[in-house]
């Protein structure tokens, strides 16, 4: 699987108390070009992410399937209750199957 040039950014606390709800913010730099836009009379080729998949300790946690109405540089926020040391894996996939990955660990204080 080839890699996307897109740069992901994750904002997540490094540690949390057991039972604490944490906020996870994700953003990936991507044009999300729909193929419907024109520039100088020519259609800009479609270049879209299709999916964000987030896993927590290997289990599916949250995913997003993107359609044309998702903005440039897709941004998502969601909330998780921390019960134990947690490993988060973030995978974005584009319509050509290319992927960008990031990961984060949250320790329990």
């Amino acid at each position: 699987m080839s890699a996307l040039p897109s740069q992901p950014r994750i904002r997540i606390p490094r540690s949390a108390r057991v039972g604490e709800v944490i906020e996870i913010r994700t953003l990936i730099e991507h044009p999300m070009e729909t193929g419907l836009r024109h520039e100088a009379g020519r259609a800009l080729p479609r270049d879209m992410l299709t999916r964000l998949m987030v896993r927590l300790n290997g289990e599916a946690l949250f995913s997003a399937d993107f359609q044309n109405g998702t903005s440039t540089n897709p941004y998502h926020v969601f909330f998780v209750r921390i019960e134990k040391p947690s490993h988060f894996e973030f995978i974005w996939t584009d319509e050509k199957g290319r992927q960008a990955r990031s990961e984060a660990r949250v320790a329990v204080a």
């Binding site: 709800v21 927590l56 289990e59 599916a60 946690l61 949250f62 995913s63 997003a64 399937d65 993107f66 359609q67 044309n68 109405g69 998702t70 969601f78 909330f79 998780v80 209750r81």
Partner: peptide
């Protein structure tokens, strides 16, 4: 616009 898939692991 988008579809989000949620699990009970979310708070």
């Amino acid at each position: 616009v988008a579809t989000f898939r949620l699990t009970p692991l979310l708070a």
